[in-house]
Structures are given as C-alpha cells and as structure tokens.
Design a protein around this nucleic acid. Sequence first.
DNA 1: GCAATGAGCGTC
DNA 2: ACGCTCATTGCT
Length: 667
Amino acid sequence: MEKRGTKGKARTLFPAAVDPVARVAVDIPHAHLDRPFDYLVPERLAAAAQPGTRVRVRFAGQHIDGFILQRVSASEHVGRLAYLERVVSPEQVLTPEIAGLARAVADRYAGTLADVVRLAVPPRHATTESEPRGEPAERPERPDPGPWERYPAGPAFLDAIAAGRPARAAWTALPGLTWPEEIARAAAASAATGRGTVIVVPDSKDLARVGEALTAVKAAHVSLTADLGPAERYRRWLAALRGDVLIAAGTRAAMFAPVRDLGLVVLWDDGDDLHTDPRAPYPNAREVLALRAHRARAAALIGGFARTTELTQLADSGWARTLEAGRGTVRATAPSVRPAAVEADLGRDAAATTARLPTLALRTARAALADGPVLVQVPRRGYLALIACARCRAPARCAVCGGPLRLAGAHEVPDCRWCGALAGDWACVNCGGRKTRAVVTGAERTAEELGRAFPGVPVRTSGRSADGAGLSVLATVPDQPALVIATPGAEPVAPYAAALLLDGWAMLGRPSLRAAEETLRRWLGAAALVRPSGTVLVHADAGLPAVQALMRWDPVWFAERELADRAELSFPPTVRMASVSGTTDGVASLLSSLESGFEILGPVPVENRKGAAPETDAFEEESRALVRAPRPAGAALARALQAAQAARSARKEGGGVRVQLDPAELI
DNA sequence: GCAATGAGCGTC
DNA sequence: ACGCTCATTGCT
C-alpha cells in the first residue's frame, strides 16, 4: 500500500488480491525502453485490468498510454512499483496473438513494439465502443471449388483449409477477373469451420472487388481501409475483434486485423509496393502475414498474376507449395503477347515522340478498337532518372558492388548509389560500350498523342501522377471502343480487346534491383485484363527474360531465374539488407554502435530530404549506408541494429536515423 | 566540514 | 517531466 497524490487529498491504495502485478507495454518512442514495465493493480481495478486492455500509467512523471500484456503474481523488478492510474476501456484490444505478432514483427524489422502496436491497434473511439453490439454473423456454407477447379491442386487446397490444416500456397493466379472469387471461396471455406480469415489487397479498388466476391458467396466480412473515418474504422475493427465477423479484408493495415481463431491469411499481389507500410519499422504485408500464419498455424494464400522473388524463396524453402494452373489452361486464358522492337536510335528527340508509339502498336490498336476498348499502359512521369549505356541502353552498374550508378551533377564522374565508388573508367558489362547517357521519359503526353492518332475515338485516362496531384483513378470503363490510358496499377477493369504496354524498355532500365521483376508484374497486371482472344503488344526487346516471361505467361520461370541471378550477386532476397539513412552524423554514430561482423556498404551522401539548399539553416548533410548479411544471419542483423538504436536512444542522441530492413529500393 | 544548489539520468 | 544521485559551490 502506498500514499499517493502530493496535491489534494492523499489516497491509500491496496494491491489486488490475485495477480496484483500488471506487465505493461508502454507507448514510449525510445528504443532503449522497449520492454514491459510492471505496475501494481489497485484493488478497484482488479477486475477491469485484463490483459489486452488500454491503460494509463505514470511513467517518469508523465501520464502515458500502454497496454496490459499479462497479469502476474509477482514482479522481478527490484524497487517500488507504481500503481496503474486508469483502465481506459474494458475492451481487450491487444489480443495475445497480436501482441506476440507485434513483438515478432518489431524484432524482425529492428523496430519497437510501440511502433508496431500503433500500426496494429486503431485509436479508440469511445462512443463507437459503447454502441449496442449487433448480432454475430452466421457462418457461410462451405462453397464449391468453383474457379479453383482450374488449378490441379485447387480443390485439395480448399479441403485443407476446411480441415483446419495449415496449407500454405504460393499462388500464381490465372489471368482474368476470377481471382477475387477464388479468394472469397478460400475465405468462406475457412469461415465455414468457424475460423477467422485476414485478406490483404493493395488498394481500395481491389478491395471493392474482393468485397463483392465475399458477398456473392454469403461470407460475412468487414472491409478495412485507411480512408474510413475513425468511428467507422473502429466499429469494423471491433466487429472482427469481438468475433462478430470471421473475415476481415482490407489494405495493408488489415494485416494486423484481430480476427478470432485465425485459420487463413490471404495476400493478393504481394509484389506491390503498397504492401510496405511507410512508417517505422516499415513492415511488409507478405512478411507479416507469413509470420502470422506461421505463428498461428494458419493456412496461407499468397500470390497474384506475377511471382515475386521473395515468394519464390518461400516456395523453394518448402514453406509454401506452388498453386498454379497447368500450361494448357494458362494458354487458353491468357491473351497473345507480341513484342514491338525498340528503335535502335532514341536520340532523335523531336521524332522520339512517334518512336514511342511504334507503328505496330498503332496498327494493333486500330484493329482492336473495332472489338472493344484498348488499354494503353504508360509509366508514370518523373519515374526515371538513371544512367544507361549509350550504345545498348543496359543500366549502368558499379564495377565494385553491382549497385546502380548515378550522375550527381553535370560533367561529373558517375558514382555508385550503394557504395560510393567512382566509376571513372566505366565499361558496359553487356556490350563493352564506354559512354553513358542519362535516360528520361515523359508519359502523360501519351493521351494527347493518341488522341491525334485516332481522331473520333474517346480517350480516357486513369492514374496518379508521380507527385500525387492530377489525374484520377477509374475503377471500370464501359465495354465500348475507346482508348484507355492508365499508369501501372490504375488500369480500369474492362474486357479489353488489346493492350499496348508502352515504354517497357524504360521501365526495365530503371536503376533498381527490382526493375525487371516490377516491370513484368505491371505488364502482367495490365495484360490479365485483356480477353483471351485479345492481343498484347509490349514495347521492349523480345530477347529480354521479362518479355519472354510475358509472352509465354510464365512468371514462375522468370522469378526462379531472377532469384538465381540475385543469389549469384548476393542481392536480396537471397541476402538480408538493411538501409541506414539520416543525417551524416547520425548514420555514422549508429554504424559505430553496430556490433562488428556485418558488411557495410557506404555510407554515401544522398540528397537532403528536406530539400533545403546548402548554406541554409535547415540544411543538414544526409547520407545512407547499406548493411548486408547472409540470410541465416538475418535475425542477428535485426537484433544488432535494434541494439545500436537502443544505445543511441539511451545516449539521447537525436538526428533521426531511419533503419529499414529489406528496403524495397536499394538506391 | 558540510549544507545548498544544479546537472545528469533513469524511467516499474 | 519527476525524483533520485552525485558533483560542485560557497559559507562556516
């Protein structure tokens, strides 16, 4: 017992009779305080202070929020314990499953539990919480396999889900628009047995499709998106927490949805960069859901039209089994793909606009317009700023570490974005050429150009520009002759008669490790909307593996090949990489706190994030380093980075250093 | 020799 | 943002 309260009347508190100690995860942003703290549960909160509840505690003189992780009979802490101040709400919002997952995710990404819990548990909305609770939804009937019959292992996969077995599938979806239905049937099979399902898709357009498909199989669900208001978001999230619905579908934050008795996780299009949360510790939905399925012994359905190297690795390791259709089915479902050769000389500037629309593309469009809409995929503007070989246009890479080269200023020697090595005597590994050129492309003039080429044909555009402003995304377009210009990921749904994939060579030439994988993913996403009798024209050289993979509709072949190349070069995902960025001083101090034994590339200076010019007050020199470790040392790398950040935070060193494991882009 | 003041640090 | 420790200061 203890006297409390310096001002006002002192109160004498007594600890609860049973399990008087609460282990609390406090919401503190400091890495060195990322551990539970024990508090005494006062008698009056003995019943309310349940594990998972949100509480308010006094920590170093401040009132802060936290979550009760556990109630225990005694504390290990030597010294006096403070009392819990308040139980904010009786709702047990941080379930044991999610608390354990959040800890594992924080450890995997060298982050803190508090950061992950902030992503996992939405802010409380008190009035929503006290609303009368609706009727729990009925379980759906177990559905027929339906479109899963087209995959040899499809019906067996549904059987496994229905039997509660943790079957894990690396899924290559057939082209067309049946994938939402396939996902819905898998979810319904799980819900029919009373177990929960979490479905994550890249954007709200895809979510709407999955929602419709779930409704069609009478599978009660909630849709969780970031753009709901706080009340509606919390209402739906609570419905999942309380077990009123068994299926939660949503965009990336739904990966933490607290459905009851998790039986299945589903991730659509796992290569989409929207699946990586932009807030520390930058968790990726594929990794989180794989971890979650593993921990919960749940089934998993991960994939898309494309195949990522990461998922290929999960399949190769035996963690997941491939789930794909036979070649005959693929051939019957996919459109035919033809390459349009890239003109040898792109330097003709004025004429280059027409070079971007090869005559074959124009002819293909003209012929297809009689049958229906024609999709034109163009890269986003502001996408490309790279150096390539002037002769063969292969991206210029560093001779030391294989990283992409950049040209920091005019008339300078290119240097490596990864290790900083100067590339003074550069020679192209592809053709031996010794001259580089900057490559740029603009894309948003395409609509105009096509409009002129096809007078009288309606032109619609869909997409986001690189700066986020301008243009809007269309979900669908009518099945009528029209030219539909879209940026990757923003393609409206329609039974297209043809698709033109423009400037593919430029997307392939981006200075990114994932350029080819990402380009193929975008091509497949657009081509999958074209009807099987339709034509796809891809503006890139037929000899390139990504183009070959598209023509043969064989993304797994490509991914296996790509993965082998990455292994050869010690690139992710065959190794673990971490990027450390921030002020030059901060990066240096973090690296000096890092336990030795890891390979460090850089640091190299990078453009100032705040955009401040040198010699101004806001300007602070920034840099970035990469840390590389073999895969088996991945956990040790994360631990070492976590420790280095804890050391910095204990020393109260500021400077905001970002540590990102498995960064999507290594530039 | 010792109280009074302040900087530094851990934080239950 | 509190309350503890430990060092420094200034007065006897």
